[in-house]
Nucleic acid binder design. Structure first.
Lengths: 220, 220
DNA sequence: CGAAAACCTAACCAGTTGGACAATTTTTCT
DNA sequence: AGAAAAATTGTCCAACTGGTTAGGTTTTCG
C-alpha cells in the first residue's frame, strides 16, 4: 500500500480505529460533517462551529477529539487518499487493454458519483498547491504512473494500442472523470438538469470510454 | 456576445474603462493582485489586507475603489468570463472538423498556460456551486453548447465524425485542458518537474488532440 | 492661481473564529 | 458501589477581518 507517505499521525497499525465506541462514533461523525463543510466552504471558509453543529456536538467537543481544525482537515484528506488508491484499480500487462482501461474509467467515474465531496476536497487541495498532499503526489502517485507507463509502453510495443504519452493519457482520464464531481454544477447547468442523474453518468462513461479507447487505438 | 448575462455593475458601454489615469491604474493593480490572492487562498481565505499589500496600496484605499471584497471578486470573475468567451473561439459548420477542434483544444490549453490563476478561480467558483456564475452557465454557456451541438450533429450526419454526445464531448475537452492549470501542482509532481514547461504543454496539446480527433473519428 | 474633485491613509470598530479551560456529567472497570 | 477515565459543555479570549471615518494630500481644470 502506501509506504513512503503517511498522512495520519499514528505510526502504528493501519487498521482498526482506536478508542471506545463513543470515541469511534463521534470521530466518524465529525469526519463526515467536516467532509461536507470543507467541500462546500473550502478550508478557510469552513468553521469548526459548523462542523460541530452538523456532527451534532458542541464545538468544544470537536476540539476535544481533534485538537485543531487543521488536524480534522488532515484526517479528511488522508481518508480521501485511501479512496484514490482503491479507485486506482489494477492495470497490469497481463490485462486486456480495452477491459482494463474501460474498468478504470468506469471506476473513476462512479467514484465521482458516489463521493463527490471527497473529490471536491481533493481538487481544492490540489488547486491550493497541494500543501498537504505534495509528498503523496511526488512519491506514491508518481511511482504508480511510472509503473503504469511501462504497461502502456508494452501494450504499444505489442501493437495493442498506439504509443501515446502515458502521463498525459492518465492526466486526461483523471480530468475527464473528476470533472463530473468537481464541475457538477457547471455540467448540470449546461445539461439543464438540476442534479446529475444516473443516466448522465452512464452517458459520460460511454462517451469518455469510447473516445479514449478509439483515440488510443485500443482494439476491443 | 453576452446578452443575457452581465456580471459587471455598469449597465453602460462595455468598453473603455472609466475614470482618470490613477483610478484606472490602481483598479488594474488591485484586480491583478486580487486574482493572485483569490487563486491561491480561495474566496474565504483571501484577505483584503493581502490584496492591498500586493497591489502596493493601503487597505483603506482598496476599499475606496471597490466597496467590498465581494465586489472585487465579482469583477475578477467577470474578467475571467470574458476570457472564456474569447477562448471559445469559433466552431462553425463550414469549418473543417479537424482544424476547428484542433485549434479549439490548442487555444484552451494555451489559455491554461498563460492564465492559470484565472483558470483556478473559475474552477473554485464552480466547485463552490457557482454562486456568481450560475446565470452565465445556465444561459450563455448552455446556449453556446447547444449551438455547437448542432454543428457536431451535422458533421456526424455528413460522416465527417462519429456521433458522440456533444455535451460530454465538450465536458471532456474542457476538463482535459483546464486540468493543466487547475491541477498543475499534481501534474508537475507526477512529471517530476518543478514547474510545467513549454514542452509539457506542447506534449499535452499533441496527446489530447490526437486522442480526441481519432477517438471521434475525425479525419485529418 | 485656486477651488473642487479625486485620492490616500492612520486609527478605529464590531463581528467572527479557533482554541483554551475548568467544571460537570457520563461511562467504564474493578 | 465507587473510583478512575472519558466525554461534554458553557464561558472566555486573543487574533484577525471586513469595513468605516475623518482628516489630510494630490490632481485636475477653469
Amino acid at each position: 500500500m502506501v509506504h513512503s507517505f503517511d498522512i495520519e499521525d499514528d505510526g502504528g497499525a493501519d487498521e482498526a480505529p482506536q478508542g471506545g465506541r463513543i470515541r469511534q462514533r463521534n470521530k466518524a461523525r465529525i469526519i463526515a460533517a467536516a467532509e461536507k463543510v470543507f467541500a462546500e466552504r473550502g478550508y478557510d471558509g469552513a468553521t469548526t462551529a459548523e462542523i460541530a453543529e452538523i456532527a451534532g456536538l458542541a464545538k468544544s467537543n470537536v476540539h476535544y477529539y481533534f485538537g485543531t481544525k487543521e488536524a480534522i482537515y488532515r484526517e479528511v484528506v488522508a481518508g480521501i487518499v485511501d479512496l484514490w488508491l482503491k479507485a486506482f484499480g489494477e492495470i497490469t500487462a497481463e490485462d486486456d487493454p480495452a477491459t482494463a482501461i474501460s474498468a478504470y474509467i468506469r471506476q473513476k467515474l462512479l467514484y465521482s458519483r458516489k463521493r463527490p465531496l471527497a473529490s471536491r476536497i481533493f481538487a481544492t487541495e490540489i488547486i491550493r498547491g497541494a500543501p498537504i498532499l505534495r509528498p503523496f503526489l511526488e512519491v506514491d502517485l508518481r511511482d504508480w504512473v511510472e509503473a503504469k507507463a511501462k504497461v502502456l509502453a508494452l501494450w504499444a510495443a505489442q501493437g495493442r494500442m498506439d504509443a501515446v504519452s502515458p502521463h498525459h493519457f492518465f492526466f486526461m482520464i483523471w480530468a475527464a472523470t473528476q470533472t463530473y464531481a468537481d464541475f457538477a454544477s457547471q455540467i448540470s447547468a449546461v445539461l439543464g438538469h438540476k442534479r446529475l442523474r444516473e443516466a448522465d453518468f452512464e452517458q459520460a462513461i460511454a462517451t469518455v470510454t469510447a473516445i479514449v479507447l478509439k483515440g488510443c487505438g485500443i482494439k476491443a
